[in-house]
Amino acid sequence: MIEVKDLAKNFGRKKVLKGISFTAEKGEITCLMGINGAGKTTIMNAIMNLTSFKSGEILIDGEKLNKHSYEKITFIPDAITMLPQMTIGEALQFMKDFYTSWNEIRAKELLEFFRLKENEKISSLSKGNTAKVNLLLGLALDVDYLLMDEPFSGIDIFSREQIANVFTSHLVEDRGVIITTHEINDIEHLIDKAVLLDDGMVLREFSTEEVRENEGKSVVDVMREVYQR
């Protein structure tokens, strides 16, 4: 389980996170939602120790993040984490060189799944394919937790479909996934839990099936209630 407790952060005088708390279970897909500037990316960066924060605590299976955690939790930001002059094959080799949790078989399977070729240069890829390579780099690690920042933004509809299919496949089986998005349509049926953020605060944290079952509301209905108050 990933526990975020009372996370606060300032950029200069501006408070970007004002005491964020939520949890994300293993085996579930948790979605952080909110308009741009709500603090979604900052939260992910903080979980991965890619930025400092003023106060609060983040625990991953009860432990603070350390260098070994990167074999257990990984982050797929919204831009590719490899150098443009590398080929896809070189990027995969880089991962293999450094991560013991790298799963070569899965990497090959993903290449096929996304229809990517190893000899292609990253700089020559379309936006959609770049996003797929980026996703592949994270998915081919045998990690328990996956963080994805806006995996659907700015790419073509077919790439979106392909990426959405990842979530229903064995590729995320039994993993804990945290995903950020400002567009719920692609994944409304896929997520277990939604965390609605605004202005650095959690406005509501709920199970999507429970809200449908108990209140007869769609995720968008709840968002409308929460944001248009």
Partner: peptide, 13 residues
């Protein structure tokens, strides 16, 4: 698992 893939739903569902 197969059902989740076929219907494009969450495996937990």
């Amino acid at each position: 698992r197969e059902l989740a893939t076929q219907l494009k739903i969450n495996p937990n569902t």
